[in-house]
Write a protein that binds this DNA or RNA. Structure first.
Length: 599
DNA sequence: TATGAGGGCGCC
DNA sequence: AAACGGCGCCCTCATA
């Protein structure tokens, strides 16, 4: 029996699902969720699955969920999601990613709190007791992550699980062997290992915070917030919790009866109140703009302004964590608090950066790689046209706009440049037509035309991206310029959704991963420079934000040291290896993180 | 009272 | 229809 027979027999996918749900209990003890996911993904355990459906024999379980022909025509993604969510796959997104990545299941499902404690042990190397070498655990944790980056921030338990031994010395041997086998020794020796003490130093030094500044912001923003709250309640005709998407949706969509076109729904079927949705009805009711303002202030206050002051040490310095093995791509992550998402785009948000300051007599020096991901994509792909653009020192978004829209560079206006920028980033994230049209607010045809034109003009890049998919499916992993790997399981999936997701991740991994390699290497080389020049007391790394490094520097030497650091960042890779593209870094200096002037 | 999922949003 | 990569954190709300 095929899937379509099955659907015919039961009438609809819902009916099949009902039946499935009725018989669900008996499988619950045996880990039903994992099995169904496994079935949908791999088509394994067919027999058990048929058992779930009573006597029905299923030849192709995958087809049950996703019929062969035209996935898009026959199946409502929403339905699948809701079926899955009924089956308690609540954390579907995360789990799908785990499946695609082949992330090993945790053996004993520890409560999150315990997990978090364990993670802290890895970070705080003093916590293991006398018989365990904390520094060694940290090293092995990072090595394990290099071997399989799908396990981020590996714990001691992860290390023992992977190596199947109970001794750090034994584990080290096994892990080093794996490292060699996968040609990761260089990344370890040249980048990750020397980075360990640098990050420890950065965490220990922390960043100076002006809490008075935050206090002022808190006061003024809270005042604005309560005015907005009253205004919104007034327009809504009653009090409600604006922070609750559920209640807000009730007000907007039911009470006020607002019904925008193409109204999107959330995973659980409720009407979405996210910004891009509300934007569509901005002109339909005066309440909408107030909701935007309210949300912005609420976010800034609750995430940053009213939180950071409570985390400072006695010198008003903030010591966030920077997790060296925190991402699957090679980037750092930051937490407690996350200093890699301090607001920057809106003026109200940027004001928070005014409170990131230095000790007296110092300045902040910020170095950020300019359009680093596009430059990386250009040289990884060896795309002639993109390379030319960068070699000529042109503005890449303008140049791309000129190519894609077929006008001269002088004719490229702001709007065209903005679109080109969206496309440039979208390409590196594996964006499809649909989301492009959503982003540009264009028609499908138009979006398709842009994409075609893009890949037509930048065919080196097109070919490269195609090749990444093929190679990743063949090898099972992607590789960065410095040979950092990321493994995938989902590239061979028959389910279009799973496969497409895996492909997007695979396209992005080498680009984002090479960016991570570069900035990490920069941190290492700059630190060597600081030590060689005996500048340890005058030049201190305080923040890393993926393509940006912020140092607290003695103001007397700031302008002198800046070009040297910039130079180190720009000459990490021989220019011939980047096909003539400079990894350009911009430098700026200031009293605080908001008002920085370019050097 | 604590937990975890969901919705939402800050950054690169 | 939200599927555009990588993160961490906040609030609400149902459930334990």
């Amino acid at each position: 029996m095929t899937a379509s027979d099955l659907i015919q027999k039961f009438g609809s996918i819902e009916e099949i699902y009902k039946k499935l749900k009725k018989n669900k209990k008996q499988f619950e003890e045996a880990g039903i969720k994992e099995r169904i996911i496994g079935l949908l993904i791999e088509g394994e355990e067919e027999a058990k699955f048929s058992k779930m459906l009573g006597t029905i024999r299923l030849d192709a379980p995958i087809d049950f969920a996703i019929p062969e022909k035209t996935w898009k025509e026959n199946i409502d993604v929403e339905k699948i999601i809701s079926v899955w969510s009924d089956l308690e796959f609540r954390t579907l997104g995360a789990r799908l990613k785990d499946i695609i990545n082949g992330k090993p299941k945790a053996e004993n499902q520890k409560v999150d709190v315990e997990k978090k404690e364990e993670k802290n042990q890895i970070i705080d190397t003093g916590l293991f007791g006398p018989d365990i070498d904390g520094e060694k655990v940290k090293e092995l944790s990072i090595i394990l992550w290099l071997i399989n980056s799908n396990v981020t921030n590996p714990t001691l338990e992860d290390i023992y699980n992977f190596t199947k031994v109970k001794d750090l010395g034994d584990a080290e041997k096994i892990l080093m062997d794996e490292l060699k086998k996968r040609e990761l020794v260089k990344v370890w020796e040249k980048i990750e290992k020397p980075l360990i003490p640098i990050i420890e130093k950065m965490e220990k030094i922390g960043v100076k915070i002006d809490k008075k500044e935050l206090g002022i912001l808190s006061k003024t923003y809270h005042e604005k917030l309560s005015i907005l709250e009253k205004k919104i309640w007034e327009l809504a005709g009653g009090e409600f919790n604006i922070n609750s998407p559920k209640q807000l949706g009730e007000i907007l969509f039911v009470k006020l009866g607002l019904k925008p076109k193409n109204q999107k729904k959330t995973g659980s079927g409720a009407l979405s109140t996210k910004e891009s949705e509300l934007e569509k009805m901005r002109d339909m009711h005066p309440i909408i703009p107030f909701v935007f303002e309210y949300r912005e202030l609420q976010k800034l206050l609750s995430t940053y302004i009213d939180v950071i002051p409570n985390l400072l040490d006695e010198n008003d310095r903030l010591h966030a964590k920077f997790l060296q093995a925190g991402t699957t791509t090679g980037r750092l992550a930051s937490s407690d608090p996350n200093l890699q998402n301090i607001p920057n785009s809106s003026e109200l948000g940027r004001n928070i950066r005014k409170s990131f300051i230095t000790e007296k007599g110092c300045k902040l020096l910020a170095f950020d790689y300019s359009q680093i991901e596009i430059r990386i994509a250009a040289f990884l792909a060896n795309d002639k046209k993109l390379i030319e653009i960068f070699k000529n020192g042109e503005d890449v978004h303008t140049a791309v706009a000129s190519e894609v829209f077929g006008v001269s560079k002088e004719k490229v206006d702001k709007e065209m440049r903005r679109k080109a920028k969206v496309i440039n980033f979208g390409i590196m994230y594996g964006m499809g037509v649909n989301s492009l049209k959503g982003q540009l607010g264009s028609t499908r045809e138009e979006a398709q035309k842009y994409l075609d034109e893009y890949f037509n003009k930048f065919n080196g890049l097109a070919k490269y991206l195609e090749n990444v998919k093929i190679e990743t499916e063949k090898l099972g992993y992607t590789e960065t310029f410095f040979s950092r790997r990321r493994y995938f399981e989902g590239m061979r999936s028959k389910i279009p959704f799973i496969r497409a997701m895996a492909e997007r991740m695979a396209i992005n991994a080498p680009i984002q991963g090479t960016e991570a390699d570069l900035i990490k290497l920069a941190m290492v080389k700059i630190d060597e420079f600081i030590i060689a020049e005996k500048l340890g007391q005058k030049v201190k790394l305080t923040l890393q934000v993926h393509d940006e490094l912020v140092y607290e520097v003695d103001e007397k030497i700031a302008e002198e040291v800046a070009p040297k650091i910039k130079n180190i960042m720009e000459s990490l890779v021989p220019i011939k290896d980047t096909k003539g593209i400079v990894m350009k870094a911009d430098v700026s200096v200031g009293e605080d993180w908001k008002e920085m002037k370019k050097l």
